[in-house]
């Protein structure tokens, strides 16, 4: 029974990957087509405000200072392209299949589907897509579609090839409700950091374009300006940071229950701490003169690289107590 459900889960996951892959192609085609028509980089309203304010600040020091960050007004939507709608629709369809695969895996193991690396990746990518689709309902982030679906397909590929393990019972160390809380929140944090990093990457590409029209990639008109992207990235990343802080605390409480100490500089603890410190730096960078813009975007990307390293490298190659990969 367990075996059959697991095989069915794997099948659904492959289907989801296929659908995501086509969605990725659609998103990419849309980007390509729109950027072909974009000779001039349009400046979003928020960026115009920011630039005007920057100029005003330089000339009129001492006036009523309005130093808050500009509001992020989404730019006017261009005419909807069919490929874009196909991309979103397929992303949703893929997500439903992905959800089915994950739920089945959980049913097969009769527990939460995030007890080893394979399951963590499966649920992790599910939540990355979920957070992205959820944010789509609030803002037009479809320009991130190519990056997000691309990353998810890539991660799922690595996962199914490299991390796939059979369903086995939970070892005693993982038999705790903290498995549900600690790991789920860690996954949520990772999902928000992923969207944040994607925004920062677009921001950097965009910044190169704004500095010199001939350099860098050509990006479509509909993508917001760097200031807006930075604001969005910041808001997504602070949500991730809150979740990460909670992960750290919950992990310490669990460690105290399971291992008899709340903090022991285990390799995984070290990297969780490093990530926390980098994102703390990122949040401070935003409040430091001279560090807004591309520099803070780089910090967010460095932080996200540490997240990926913590998962992909530390779990597999580093010796430590978090040896749950099942590999």
């Amino acid at each position: 029974m367990t075996q059959t459900l697991d095989e069915f889960s794997a099948l659904l996951l492959y289907l989801a990957m296929g659908v995501y892959a086509i969605s990725f192609i659609a998103f990419t085609l849309d980007l390509a087509r729109r950027s072909a028509g974009a000779a001039v980089v349009a400046e979003s309203a928020a960026d115009r405000v920011a630039r005007a304010r920057g100029a005003a600040r330089g000339s009129a020091a001492g006036s009523v200072a309005t130093l808050d960050p500009p509001r992020a007004d989404a730019p006017a939507r261009p005419r909807e392209s069919l490929t874009l709608r196909v991309g979103v629709t397929l992303a949703i369809l893929g997500w439903v299949l992905h959800l089915g695969a994950t739920v089945l895996r959980g049913v097969a193991g009769a527990r939460v589907p995030w007890a080893n690396m394979y399951e963590f990746s499966m649920t992790g990518t599910l939540i990355i897509m979920g957070v992205f689709l959820l944010l789509l309902a609030r803002r037009d982030l479809r320009f991130l579609g190519a990056i997000i679906t691309g990353m998810v397909v890539l991660m799922l590929g690595v996962t199914t090839v490299g991390f796939r393990v059979d369903v086995v019972p939970l070892p005693p160390a993982l038999q705790s409700y903290w498995l549900v809380i600690h790991v789920l929140v860690a996954i949520l944090a990772t999902a928000f950091f992923t969207v944040g990093a994607a925004l920062s990457i677009v921001q950097l590409v965009r910044a190169r374009r704004e500095n010199g029209p001939e350099s860098g990639l050509r990006l479509p008109v509909a993508i917001p300006g760097t200031v807006t992207l930075e604001n969005w990235a910041y808001r997504v990343n602070i949500v991730g940071f809150i979740f990460w802080t909670f992960t750290l605390i919950a992990g310490a409480i669990w460690a105290e229950h399971a291992w008899g100490r709340y903090w022991g500089w285990d390799t995984k603890e070290v990297w969780t701490f490093i990530i926390w410190v980098i994102y703390a730096g990122y949040i401070h960078a935003r409040a430091t003169r001279g560090w807004r813009g591309s520099r803070s975007a780089w910090l967010a990307i460095v932080g996200y690289s540490a997240v990926l390293f913590n998962f992909g490298i530390v779990n597999v190659f580093f010796k430590g107590l978090h040896a749950y990969s099942g590999l």
């Binding site: 490093i274 410190v277 401070h284 409040a287 430091t288 560090w291």
Partner: peptide, 16 residues
């Protein structure tokens, strides 16, 4: 702020 930021990043590197 700059020093705090620098020390934060240094702390992250030193923990590696």
């Amino acid at each position: 702020m700059r020093t705090a930021l620098f020390l934060l990043l240094l702390l992250a590197i030193a923990a590696v």
